[in-house]
Nucleic acid binder design. Structure first.
Lengths: 191, 191
DNA sequence: ACCTGAACACCGTTCAAGT
DNA sequence: ACCTGAACACCGTTCAAGT
């Protein structure tokens, strides 16, 4: 039985850090601002995480774990794999709905050069989780020949990520929806 | 008759700042590092640009101007519009070839929340230029019904941008090539 | 016209000191 | 066990002072 995430300080720090990083990235994650949001001083953060790098790694790890849970939930409640694929882009739409935020891993993929190595690893895991899920659903849907499924899964992930990035750059959720609809019309995603 | 770009200091600053921003973004553009690369002190940068924000706006402006020139050159030398569309992703591949760098406008689209307003405007122009070019070529190629051309142009741009971001996050150019090939196989881009 | 050193308030981080 | 103020070297920026 896990306690609710907001019970202890480390969880509050992770939650607040995630929100900040989705809007400002790793470089833009200001520890004094984060600390204030949690109600402590910046120096106190170091009692919970040994460094900003380790905090970011923990944030990125929890981020892909949560994503995996959401995707499994989606697959569980939506048995039809084609319907699953239609709903998949929604998981990226939610970030945009949340104050024009974006996927943490996309932001950090851009910041690749400035990320500590173990943060890079956790960031890559998010893409891995998404691609693996897409492969599984694509196979179940029988959309592409099995040999082409891995490539197709990666293409869908990249395209959805790109749609989110372009829509964020315009602060325009409707653009995201149009892009996804066009992916569907063009055959990249099932209509 | 314009002098070569490297002749005066402002141009050297713009060129160096562009390279840095393509790797580290707006937030990661360190003025002391930039100044050293140009061979002056950070304080001297303010004689050429009134602020980091104005420097970044100038960088982003030149960036989309250069992109427009490259795309016009491509359309000029490659008369067949379908062949043009096949070569288009190459313009994004070049950044990855250059030390795993990425499109300046993609990076800054991620940093949207932290950009001064006039930088946001110049960043958006890059996407505008690319989308307008794609619309023109798509129409010439007769690939999609004219009514669907604007949406298709945006979808291609977003997908290519996403492919670059995903490949950068893995420092893997081969992944970029696979993604583009899959876009072509799925019908988003002409094969 | 262009450059500079020194200073400002702000970053991540450390540490001695508190409860 | 957890928090803090003060300090460190580093950021963007300013400015008086140099050529």
């Amino acid at each position: 039985m896990k306690k609710p995430a907001s019970t202890n300080s480390s969880d509050k720090i992770l939650a607040a850090a995630t929100r900040i990083a989705q809007a400002h990235g790793y470089g833009g994650l200001n520890l004094r601002v984060l600390a204030e949001e949690v109600g402590i001083k910046a120096a106190s953060l170091y009692h919970h995480f040994p460094s900003k790098a380790d905090l970011a790694a923990a944030v990125a790890k929890r981020y892909w774990e949560d994503s995996a849970a959401v995707l499994d939930g989606l697959a569980g409640e939506t048995q039809d794999p084609v319907a699953c694929l239609r709903k998949y882009p929604q998981t990226f739409r939610i970030s945009l709905e949340n104050n024009n935020r974006m996927c943490l891993s996309s932001f950090m993929a851009a910041e690749y050069d400035d990320l500590p190595e173990h943060v890079q690893r956790e960031v890559a895991r998010f893409a891995d989780v998404n691609v693996a899920w897409l492969e599984r659903i694509l196979l179940a849907a029988g959309i592409a020949p099995p040999a082409e499924t891995p490539a197709r899964a990666r293409a869908i992930y990249a395209a959805v990520v790109g749609a989110q990035l372009m829509a964020r750059g315009r602060a325009d959720i409707a653009l995201f929806d149009t892009l996804i609809a066009t992916y569907q019309a063009s055959g990249l995603l099932p209509a």
